[in-house]
């Protein structure tokens, strides 16, 4: 059973998502990775507005390939989420409701996800061409000088992810790996 959701990701929707749920996301998500997070942190430090409405939004940790002529976007799979851990709690405090990436999150991020109610989705690392086929439009909305690291507004349709960590702190990486571990 796949849960289909349309962004923005409201509080009610967050509470209804559980580790292990297969989800297809439609609507606007924001692509941002290392350098964009550093810039967003600088904006917050300076008391300035972020380039997009953070409340109820989903950030996708991605730096896509350029689009070929006739294509909407290039390959666009997830990057390693852990590199964004140091920036994430502050964004969660501002209402960021979901992140999409691959790999573990720090205990600090998970604690902040529980406190501010947010979900961490896993997308398949290395399936960039397949995931790109779910992107309907790509627009750079901030930090264009960062090239592949600029912030992108992505409109996606049935973008396939799995809930890895939910707002209760349940963690699929831990529970599933345990099932298959042999001593």
């Amino acid at each position: 059973m796949v849960k289909k959701i349309v962004t923005p990701l409201t509080k009610e929707m967050v509470e209804d998502l559980h580790a292990g749920d297969l989800v297809e996301i439609s609507g606007v998500i924001y692509g941002a990775r290392d350098a964009a997070h550093k810039r967003m942190q600088a904006l917050m430090d300076a008391g300035q507005a972020l380039p997009f409405e953070i409340a109820a939004s989903i950030i996708y940790y991605v730096g896509p390939c350029p689009a070929r002529p006739g294509e909407l976007i290039g390959s666009a799979g997830p990057t390693t989420s852990g590199r964004m851990d140091s920036y994430t709690p502050r964004l969660l405090q501002l209402g960021l409701a979901g992140t999409i990436g691959k790999g573990k999150r720090s205990p600090t991020v998970i604690a902040a996800m529980r406190q501010y109610r947010a979900v961490y989705f896993g997308a398949i690392g290395g399936a960039g061409a397949l995931l790109a086929s779910c992107v309907r439009s790509e627009k750079i909305i901030a930090f264009a000088d960062l090239g592949p690291e600029a912030i992108r507004e992505l409109v996606v349709e049935n973008f396939p992810v799995i809930v890895v960590i939910d707002a209760q702190g349940n963690n699929l990486y831990e529970s599933e790996v345990k099932k298959y571990r042999q001593e």
């Binding site: 991605v62 730096g63 896509p64 390939c65 070929r68 294509e71 290039g74 390959s75 666009a76 799979g77 990057t79 690392g125 290395g126 399936a127 960039g128 061409a129 790109a132 592949p148």
Partner: peptide
């Protein structure tokens, strides 16, 4: 599609 397997 002549696309990269991975964005990285």
């Amino acid at each position: 599609k002549g696309m990269a397997l991975c964005q990285d």
